[in-house]
Nucleic acid binder design. Structure first.
Length: 494
RNA sequence: UCCCCUGUAGCUCAGCUGGUAGAGCAAUUGGCUGUUAACCAAUGGGCCGCUGGUUCGAGUCCAGCCGGGGGAGCCA
């Protein structure tokens, strides 16, 4: 069977100007973000989307249509010559053309006499594909609280703010991959199910196929996980770091980028039970190298999304956080400060102001301390290194002073810690010794210790919480508003 | 997990020392010379979170429960 000329339904953007047709060779179907660049005034085009608002006068009405391809809607003008139809063939298609309805509009692009937009679509026809009854459609053409929108998480992508957040999240994710791919890193898909139950990092979600009402038990009454799917306890991963170290110690440059899970009962604007994390890991790389990587990473990703997402970023700057773009530009342009933990404590102790928690060597930096350091004492991003070993994870490389480890936190104004990382302990004996000090089950980490037995190498890495990064880049104040469907204690509705 | 705040119209909120329910926006209808947070007018809209208590009388006071938000801790 011979096929006619095949036109791709979803051509890549670079080819779109000449090939963006779907089954209608004479009709240019465009996404709204491409209208200005790919259609000229006088040309007939078709667009699809959802009605944001409608303003009607006696003879003309104006319909704002948004298709999510960009922040701005396209103004579609209906006059007495416009044919208004509905998919259901309703006699009253005009009344169905209201906020929330999905529509197809076909017409001629023209310069707009109104001040707010360059071009508009004078509609020859507009078709209501799916109506949205106004008496029950929750999104109105007015501002809604984020709190309310969380209750309709399936509809909030249709709002300006959440659309912008979603596009920014996508752009950041893409730029994260670009940053590492351009530097020859391998993306490692570390497992989501793990048998390692410690790492100190909080509570884990258990993964099991046992019947919770009637699990097999040992004679002493404890649950017999030998009967479970993995024949031992299993959990959702809280980090991919230990796994990705195996690949850094073979491919030299590796990173993870995926979901991770913590069963902590924390209810704050900065915590989720399911979130995304980026974890680069590099062999032949010490702490300074690691800090360099973190700084370059933040600068490149932020710098590029400031360019590619300018319209959305200007929206955040105007509506979410005044001065956001200026703050981010400074992050991109100024070098990060680097200080040791000991120096940070000195700065805090000489701050000449009280803190709720008194800063002293040996105790962890509190949120208020981090904010003071980066916002007031230094005034730009700062990398704090060499923390006391007691407050950091077992795998961090021990300094010769016997009291600190080669850890680093990157603190940024307005948020505090955005990146945490370290040089890893590459000496097997010291690592195992530290694990025994901490009372860990060394046997279950035998494979991890092997990385230090065979061809061990200095290596370093860090972790970045994607959602916290998006919060920082957008100015959004609640982590639940930068992820599609947030999972928090007591919340898995969507 | 702890501390604080809060549940009143579709949304955001007001409602005083207890006296029987209000505003703005949204919606509906009509009007209007191309609007853009459109405008003008009219109309409809309420188990005042739930349960119990005090009282002649509870949106208001008390107790318990449920939901939401913020802060702290933990951390990313």
């Amino acid at each position: 069977m011979r096929r006619a000329v095949v036109r791709p339904a979803f051509p890549p953007l670079t080819a779109c100007a000449t090939a963006c047709y779907i089954s209608r060779p004479t009709m240019k179907e465009l996404r709204i973000r491409n209208v200005a660049g790919e259609a000229s005034v006088g040309e007939e085009i078709e667009i699809k989307g959802w009605v944001r608002t409608r303003r009607a006068t006696k003879n003309v009405s104006f319909v704002e249509i948004n298709d999510g391809s960009r922040l701005s809607s396209l103004q579609v003008v209906l006059d007495e010559n416009t044919e208004i139809r509905s998919a259901g063939g309703s006699e009253d298609a005009d009344s169905l053309l209201q906020t929330g309805a999905s529509v197809r509009a076909r017409g001629v692009l023209q310069e707009s006499p109104g001040g707010k937009q360059e071009v508009e679509l004078l509609a020859k026809s507009i078709r209501v594909v799916g109506p949205a009854p106004a008496d029950s459609y929750p999104l109105q053409k007015k501002r809604h609280s984020f709190e309310f929108l969380r209750d309709i998480a399936h509809l909030r992508p249709r709002t300006n703010t959440f659309g912008a957040v979603t596009r920014l999240r996508n752009a950041i994710s893409s730029q994260i991959h670009s940053f590492f791919q351009e530097r020859d890193f391998c993306w490692i898909h570390t497992p989501i199910i793990t048998g390692i139950d410690a790492e100190g990092a909080g509570n884990l979600f258990r993964v099991t196929t046992l019947d919770p009402a009637n699990p097999p038990r040992h004679e002493d009454g404890t649950v017999d996980y030998g009967e479970d799917f993995f024949e031992r306890p299993a959990y959702l991963a809280v980090t991919g770091q230990l796994n990705v170290e195996a690949f850094a110690c073979s491919l030299e440059r590796a990173y993870t980028f995926g979901p991770t899970f913590r069963a902590e009962n924390s209810n704050t604007t900065r915590h989720l039970a399911e979130f995304w994390m980026v974890e680069p890991e590099v062999a032949f790389c010490d702490l300074e190298c690691n800090a360099d990587l973190a700084e370059e990473f933040l600068k490149q990703v932020i710098g590029r999304v400031l360019e590619s997402q300018l319209e959305d970023m200007e929206f955040f700057d105007l509506r979410i956080q005044k001065g956001l773009i200026e703050t981010l530009r400074e992050v991109v342009e100024k070098p990060f400060e680097r200080i040791t933990y000991a120096r940070a404590i000195e700065l805090l102790q000489s701050a000449g102001r009280p803190f709720e928690y008194t800063p002293e060597f040996g105790s962890d930096l509190q949120s208020e301390h981090e904010r003071y350091l980066t916002e007031e004492a230094i005034g730009r991003p700062v990398v704090v290194t060499d923390y006391p070993k007691e407050i950091k994870a077992f795998y961090m490389k021990q300094n010769d002073d016997e009291r600190t480890v080669r850890a680093m936190d990157v603190l940024v104004p307005g948020l505090g810690e955005v990146i945490g990382g370290s040089e890893r302990e590459d000496d097997r004996e010291r690592l195992e010794g530290r694990m025994r000090e901490l009372g860990m089950d060394v046997e279950s980490y035998r494979w991890y210790l092997d990385l230090r037995r065979f061809g061990s190498v200095p290596h370093s890495g860090f972790g970045l919480g994607l959602e916290r990064f998006i919060m920082y880049a957008s100015g959004m104040q609640n982590i639940r508003d930068v992820i599609a469907f947030p999972r928090t204690p007591g919340n898995v509705k969507f």
